[in-house]
Amino acid sequence: MNNRRRSAKPALGRREFMGAGLAVAAGSAVSCSRSIEPGAGWRFFTAAEALAVEAICAQLIPADQDPGAREAGVVNFIDLQLSRRYKKHRGAYRQGIAAVDAAGRSKFGKPFVELTGERQIEVLNAVEEDSRPFFELILAHTRQGFYGDPRHGGNRNMASWKMVGLPYPPLRGREHYQG
C-alpha cells in the first residue's frame, strides 16, 4: 500500500491547519494550567470569552490522569466551528457566556474564571437549571471537541482516543495497521 496517509497527522485544510497551529503554539507556551494567552487570534470569541468558555469546558470534562477539555483545546474547536457550521449559535454563546458570568457574580461576586473549581461547579449546576438551552449546547460541543476528530480543532494529540485505548491513527483499516 502507499504511504500517503500513514502519518498520524489528520488531513487539514489550510484554514484549519492555521487554526490548529495557532492553538498548538499557544498551548505549548504554557503547558500546564492554561492553553490560552491573551490576544491569541480567536475567530469569534473575545479573549475574555475564550477564557470563560475554556473554564466552562474544563469543568464539563475535567483533567484527571488524562487530559481534559482544556488540555485538548476544546475551546479552539468551538471557536472554529462558530465561524463555520455553528455560525447560527453565535448569539447563544455571546448571551450564554454573559449569563454564566452573571451567575458567578450574583452567587459569589466574581466572574466565572476567577472562582474556585468547587464554586464553578456550583455555578454550572445553576446554569444547567436556569439556562438549559445554552448548557445543552456547550455540553454537546464540548463532547464533540473532546471526543471528535482533531481535524476540527479539538482533541489535541488525540487525547480522548488514547484515553479509551483506541489504536490510532484510525485512518486505515485493520489490515493496514496490523501490517
Binding site: Q59, I61, P62, I121
Partner: peptide, 20 residues
Amino acid sequence: PYQFMALVPPWISRWGSEHK
C-alpha cells in the same frame, strides 16, 4: 468514541469527572 456519548447510562452524571 463520540458515538459512545449515547451509551452513557442515565444514572451517570452528564458532565464532570464521573462522566469522563
